[in-house]
């Protein structure tokens, strides 16, 4: 499939020059990492998104201590009840406490997102950089594989792969990573191709460094910023994919719960008992929004000429 040919190459030095950081005379010049961190500190989006993500992670880890109810407990006296002091988010038809169910669903969705997202980025980085650096038949083979996987939208590939998960969310996580790397690999490949002809890479090659050392020491650091952004936004993309699959019954299977299965359970009652739908759906939307805010703030800090802050 044709992708927009983007040249997102951010050169470490020019990026730092854009916003000179004042340092005491004689002190070491600010490193690229520090420059980016300073820019992030002045971005409200980064703080808002970051705080929300931290809160959600804390909720997933310690939320079960906030309520006496376990996700599997059935409160037979208060079945099908709207939110009360006793059940903060209400209960479902069987008397399950929705708050503790959301805490447990959040756990699963967060684990899947935080592992599958970066895993897809690693695949994209390795295959994209290898293809771009090798050229020739190796590049052709990887490019063809990317095109092949892009023939079907990944939702359909994952539906085809569903019988092979055998109900395990760990296998699902692997499948999510394996079907979610192609577009980033395409971008990394284009970047690496233009890096390959630059003087410092040529110099390293003529000095006799092997392919792997050149890729590791010169190519990866130069595309690292892209990979960091992709890994962050990838977390949101993977949570979105997992919840969509779970909603249609192709993702996380009972007895495991995720935000997607909770939304699916609440769907039939959406108009009559809206809390069953609105709480899990709201949790998911706020979480995804927070992750994309952080991802976007990162993009702007790493490459100030892109995104909303551009001149």
């Amino acid at each position: 499939m044709a992708l927009p040919e983007t040249d997102l190459l951010t050169q470490p030095d020019t990026a730092a020059d854009l916003e000179p950081v004042t340092t005491a005379p004689g002190a070491k010049p600010a490193s690229r990492g520090r420059v980016i961190w300073r820019r992030l500190q002045h971005t409200p989006r980064f703080w808002i998104g970051g705080v929300v993500i931290v809160l959600f992670v804390l909720l997933a880890l310690f939320g079960r201590f906030l309520t006496p109810w376990a996700p599997t407990d059935q409160d037979v006296d208060n079945m099908n009840y709207p939110p009360t002091v006793l059940h903060w988010f209400g209960t479902d038809l069987l008397g399950h406490d929705l708050f503790s169910q959301i805490v447990s669903g959040l756990q699963k969705s967060l684990i899947i997102g935080f592992i599958a997202g970066p895993a897809a980025t690693i695949i994209a980085g390795i295959l994209g950089a290898t293809a771009g650096y090798l050229g020739g038949w190796g590049e052709k083979a990887i490019a063809w594989l990317i095109d092949l996987l892009l023939v079907l939208p990944s939702f359909f590939i994952l539906v085809l792969l569903y019988p092979f998960t055998h109900g395990s969310w760990v296998v699902l996580m692997v499948f999510l990573a394996v079907t979610g790397w192609m577009i980033m690999a395409q971008v990394i490949r284009n970047q690496t191709r233009s890096l390959r002809d630059r003087e410092f890479v040529k110099a390293a090659r003529y000095m006799g460094f092997g392919t792997w050392s050149v890729v590791r020491r010169h190519v990866i650091p130069n595309v690292a910023s892209l990979l960091i952004i992709d890994a962050t936004l990838g977390v949101a993309a993977m949570i979105l994919a997992e919840t969509s699959l779970s909603f249609f019954g192709f993702g996380v299977q009972p007895p495991d719960v995720s935000l997607g299965t909770l939304i699916a359970d609440g769907q039939s009652a959406a108009t009559t008992r809206p809390w069953l739908f609105l709480f899990p759906a709201g949790t998911l939307i706020v979480l995804l929004l927070a992750i994309s805010l952080v991802g976007d703030a990162l993009r702007d800090a790493i490459d100030p000429t892109s995104g909303v802050n551009r001149a």
């Binding site: 949101a236 969509s244 909603f247 759906a281 998911l284 939307i285 995804l288 929004l289 994309s292």
Partner: peptide, 13 residues
């Protein structure tokens, strides 16, 4: 941004 963060099926419901 809000639309990006809302899954298609949630938006439908």
């Amino acid at each position: 941004y809000i639309i990006f963060a809302t899954p298609t099926f949630v938006m439908g419901i």
